[in-house]
């Protein structure tokens, strides 16, 4: 099977373990949006037993090819939001998203919410089981293992982030809306949906002003994006720059150390915790 982005591949690997051969499109260190379609990628997409992609134009080329497959394709953004059913389950307040243009509807990074990731894992398990019913119980076991991990991760995030002095994060592009909503944070973003977009100077000045007045200490960039404007903003606001990984792609480091979804998320939590002044649980 073929997965469009790193976390989907992670989910598939965990659920399918040795039974599934997972091909992750794109090479380490290449942002998935920049992915140029070559014939071997098209071949892989067309021939896979299952394709997992993000949807809603996150990787338009991948989705166009997937559209032409005869085999099944799962688009993650078409999986219903699990929080809709469990409104207010364990976080009383909802986080908010501010920044150029758009809200959650335009943010594809649902996997940064561990609860949403759970729903993705279930969907992957169901899809694999329907293709390969003989191993349904194996897939179920793999899914349960990962879901347990995700639950622990969720608890850790919720406890840690409940103890913070501040609740506003400043990020390079709107990738952390789902994370923010889950744990009651406010996301301010430099650019819009796409990390390559150049933010306009007025927005930059407003943001620096707001960071100073609210005492925000950190501007978050992403592993693949150049520091660029985030560095400018940090200097302007007297803040520092730190990394928050939206998990769009496995960076080379993670491949080497076999770091997966869980450890990247833990690193993210550590970065958030130090930026927001949280007391470790």
């Amino acid at each position: 099977m073929v997965a469009g982005v790193f976390p989907l591949a992670e989910a598939a690997r965990a659920v399918g373990s040795d039974l599934v051969d997972v091909v992750e499109l794109g090479s380490p260190g290449v942002a998935p949006r920049d992915l140029g379609l070559t014939t071997d990628r098209v071949d892989a997409l067309l021939d896979a037993d299952l394709v997992l992609a993000v949807g809603k134009g996150f990787q338009p080329g991948v989705e166009e090819v997937a559209h032409r497959r005869s085999g099944p394709t799962r688009l993650v953004l078409e999986i219903p939001d699990p929080a809709k059913g469990v409104e207010g389950a364990d976080t009383g307040e909802r986080g908010t998203v501010e920044g150029a243009g758009t809200g959650l509807a335009d943010d594809p990074h649902v996997w940064l919410d561990p609860r949403y990731m759970e729903a993705i894992v279930d969907e992957v398990a169901a899809a694999l089981s329907s293709i390969d019913p003989d191993h349904e119980s194996d897939y179920g076991r793999g899914a349960r293992r990962l879901v347990d991990d995700l639950r622990m991760l969720d608890t850790l995030f919720a406890r840690t982030l409940a103890t913070c002095e501040r609740h506003t994060i400043v990020v390079a592009h709107q990738a952390f809306g789902w994370l923010a909503r889950r744990y009651g944070l406010t996301q301010l973003s430099l650019a819009g949906r796409s990390p390559e977009q150049e933010p306009d100077p007025r927005h930059l000045a407003d943001l620096a002003e707001r960071m100073r007045s609210e005492g925000i200490t950190t501007v978050f960039t992403e592993p693949l994006a150049p520091e660029g404007v985030a560095g400018t903003l940090a200097r302007e606001a007297g803040a520092k720059v730190a990394t928050l990984d939206p998990l769009e792609v496995s960076t080379a480091d993670e491949h080497d150390t076999r770091a997966g979804y869980g450890s990247v998320m833990e690193a993210n939590l550590a970065a958030l915790s130090s930026a927001l002044g949280c007391r470790a649980p």
């Binding site: 949006r33 920049d34 140029g36 134009g57 080329g61 243009g101 335009d106 949906r193 796409s194």
Partner: peptide, 10 residues
Amino acid sequence: SGAGSASVLS
């Protein structure tokens, strides 16, 4: 338009 860079590249 806020279109992703992927559609631009194509």
